[in-house]
Nucleic acid binder design. Structure first.
Length: 248
DNA sequence: GTTCTAGAAC
DNA sequence: GTTCTAGAAC
């Protein structure tokens, strides 16, 4: 029971600074960013709006669906502010990526079309999807960036620019239209390969991420071997020389 | 959302 | 026989 309302409790906490650093990353009067307790990727954070006087009520903030059923301009304001907070969060994550791994990779920002926990929360999640807590098909499909269950914030914002009728349809977020997506086959979001089960998918995702790390290392080497020379004979010769030295 | 575990799938 | 999934949780 309490696990389903933990986010609401955090959002209502009058003093976020009292939260342990293992929970809290950042906060303002209006928002807080916390670490997901069961991260489905190397980096996985949640941005929550804090209910405050003169703004939307707790029940209007209960989820994306309830937010979108508010006055359009009120909903848009919250989403714009969430977007700004998410940008700050992304920057903090990128810095941590570089510090820990020497490079940074994509970070996705979006909502689950049908959430499982009370209180609207924006996911900020690194695209590796490598984590011991990612255990089943539902976990994976709920973050697959092209499947449709994970609603990128940019997409949700784009609904506001569409015809009112389209917006009215989208904002319903009918569970019956989204929940079946969670049961679809396991498809690698990078290469579209179908994997037969979770252990195989997890190995595959790890390999894909290892490849990305290699590409990043190669890019860095090229950058450091001298701008504009990487593809020239002189550049290659120089690179080989440097590599030779490094191997000794 | 998670944990647990029966029985399906291999 | 072991691995893996997916539904119940009083």
């Amino acid at each position: 029971m309490s696990t389903l309302t933990i986010l609401r409790r955090h959002a209502q906490n009058p003093d976020p600074a009292s939260l342990p650093p293992s929970v809290l990353l950042d906060y303002t009067d209006s928002y807080l960013t916390i670490f997901d307790a069961y991260p489905k990727a190397t980096f996985h954070l949640l941005v929550l709006p804090r209910p405050k006087d003169g703004s939307l009520t707790l029940s209007e903030l209960s989820g994306l669906r309830s937010l979108l059923s508010c006055q359009k301009k009120d909903a848009k304001k919250i989403l714009d502010e969430l977007a700004a907070q998410a940008e700050k969060t992304k920057e903090l994550v990128r810095e941590e990526m570089v510090q820990r791994y020497g490079y940074s990779w994509d970070i996705w920002v979006g909502f689950h079309a049908v959430p499982s926990m009370e209180h609207i929360h924006l996911h900020v999640i690194s695209s590796d999807l490598c984590s011991p807590k990612l255990k089943n098909k539902k976990h994976y499909n709920s973050f697959h960036p092209k499947l449709g269950f994970f609603l990128h914030l940019e997409e949700v914002l784009s609904w506001f620019e569409e015809e009112p009728k389209y917006f009215a349809t989208k904002k319903r977020l009918k569970p019956s239209e989204y929940e079946p997506l969670l049961k679809e086959s396991l498809v690698c979001w990078r290469c579209d390969r179908i994997l037969p089960n979770m252990p195989t998918l997890k190995n595959h995702l790890q390999e894909e991420w290892d490849k990305e790390a290699k590409r990043a290392a190669e890019k860095k080497r090229k950058r450091e071997s001298g701008p504009g020379q990487a593809d020239s004979f002189a550049g290659n010769a120089k690179k080989q020389h440097v590599e030779g030295v490094e191997e000794i």
